[in-house]
Each structure stands twice: as C-alpha cells, then as structure tokens.
Nucleic acid binder design. Structure first.
Lengths: 157, 157
DNA sequence: CTCATTGCAAAGGATTTGCACTAAT
DNA sequence: ATTAGTGCAAATCCTTTGCAATGAG
C-alpha cells in the first residue's frame, strides 16, 4: 500500500521518515476523501501524532508522486484521496452529511473538450461536483456531520 | 440596474444605505466575476470606499436577493456575478490569465439529475468548471494575472 | 557527519464577528 | 427615537513558512 510511496521517496533521494509513511498509510489506505485535518486526527487517535505542517507537506508529496489526488469541493478546505487506477471520475456530495460518492461518465471527457474548443479554449481538465441528498439523509437518518462550508451553502436561504 | 436591489431592501424592511447601493452597483453592473477584494478595490478607486465587512455582508444580501450568484472556482476565494436572466451556466477558467468564460449546456441539467438518481441521491445543484487555456494565452499573449490558487494548481508538477 | 525533515509557533489570506459609533426609517 | 448598519480590529479557519532541534542517509 505505501510501498510505492517509499519507492518514490527513495528514487527522489528524499528521506523516508516515519511521519511520511504514517500519513501515506492513512491517505492511501482510506476509501474516503480525507481533509488534512481528518488525516491529522486519525494519526492522533492511532498514537502516531504528526505535526500539522508535516501533514500538509506530506500531502503535497503524495500529490506530486501521483499516488494521491487533491480535491476541492468548495467546502473551504481540500480533500485527498488515493489515486487508484481510475483515470478520472466525478463526485456526488451529500449536502447534509458530507458523504462523498464517486461515479464515472465517459461522456464528460468528450463533452468538456468539445465545449472548450467551441470557445477557443484548449481543455486541460474539468471538475464536476453534484450536490444533493444521499439516501439516508432523504430518510432523515443522516449523520449531520457536514463540514461548515457545505452546511453553510446548503442552509443559506 | 440597482433598482431591483433597492426594491428588495425596501420589501424586506432593510435600510437602503449608500454602501449597499455602491456594492450593488459594482457587482450588478459588472460583466466580470468579481471577488470581494476586487469589489472593495473598485469602490476605493471610485472614492466610495466601503469597509471590508460591509462588502462581505452586502455580497451575502445580493446572493440572498437572488440578484447575484456566488461562484467558487477553487481559487481559495469566492467570486460574484450578476444573476442575469440565464438560469444556469457553466464556466471555463483560463489557468494562465484567470479569465472566465461562460457557456450553457442544457444536457448537463438532465445528465446530473440522472446520475444522482442512479446513486440514490436527490440532485440539488451541480458545479462544472473546465480549466484550460484561452486563445490569447495559447498564443503566448496572455496577461498572466491568474490568482495564486489557479496558478498553483496549474503549475504543480 | 551533513543535509533534509520535523514541529512549534508565527504569519498569511479570505472571511466572519464583537462592539462602539453612526445613520436610516 | 428606534432599530439596524458601518467600520475597525480582533478572531477564525485553512494553509504556509521561519527556524531551532532532530533524525535519515
């Protein structure tokens, strides 16, 4: 799981530290889209506390290495997920509980390229987030753990 | 231009102040997607300086009134644009100069609703941003004024 | 042993909030 | 007169950076 990161560090002559491996283990081993704060907290409960700055610095390394991907769902902070084999996918974000669901739609790649072209742009990438209510939140059994920003936006009259 | 906002304030028994009208005039009269900072600066050069807090508070009012729309392009701050007649549209952001181009695609509304449904979600809204290079930047004549965050993401190796 | 990393604390940028002061109704 | 808005500064949130102490190679 974290071997590829260890390799990356070695190949780039970067010290392989316990902190880096700990952060990598949490991020790459998670099925979630974690924020830096969540990573830090998870390490803390595992009795492997790592300084905030180091968490951020390691997240950057993980992104550079291509092993993790950075996401911005407009919540006011960034999230990180392991960069599995999946080339590109989109996200569904529950505005009530903050749950993130992934999906893939090949049409989007082509669509966005064509749209960009018709405006004279050369497409580099795109980002689609669909905001809605997940099943449990529709039934009123949601967890209500949504991060402030999403909450804010969802509640805003 | 700002009459609808004046009406909105009156209808809601909110004081019509010079500051509110000044902010509204800048935001609603602009063809750009302005940040709070840009609004504040524009007011300053017009010799109508308004406190930062008031700018933010008025932007919130403009959004509430439905006369302006809030956007988050992942730059680290929010932008505001007048909510013209257009029901919903997407954005193309030039990663070099920061220019924003709008486009509309009716398919997206339907697509995202169906995608959400197939995951058990009830769609509320969506956000699509296509990042790319605009015509002038492709020719190397771009302005290079992109906000830090976009720059950061575009440059990141 | 040397140089990069770590962690703390301070700094930063965007946004919000407390509060005395001022202005709209 | 009331009540709400304004602006300043302090506070917050997420993230970055300076720097002395520490650890990897």
């Amino acid at each position: 799981m974290i071997e590829p990161f260890r390799d990356y560090l070695r190949e780039h002559n970067l010290p392989v530290t316990a902190q880096r491996l700990a952060v990598a283990e949490v991020v790459l081993g998670s099925a979630e889209h974690l924020s830096a704060e969540e990573v830090r907290r998870e390490l803390f409960v595992k009795h492997m506390a790592v300084g905030t700055a180091t968490v951020y610095r390691t997240l950057e390394l993980l992104v550079r290495s291509g092993l993790a991907v950075e996401r911005d769902f407009g919540e006011g902070f960034r999230r990180y997920e392991p960069a599995r084999d999946v080339p590109h996918h989109e996200h569904l974000l529950c505005t009530s509980c903050g749950n993130v669901h992934e999906f893939r739609d090949e049409r989007l790649e082509r669509m966005t390229t064509l749209i960009a072209e018709s405006s004279g742009f050369v497409r580099q990438r795109h980002r689609l987030v669909i905001y809605g209510l997940c099943e449990s939140c529709q039934r009123g059994s949601g967890r209500q753990l949504a991060p402030s920003a999403v909450q804010r936006e969802a509640t805003r009259r």
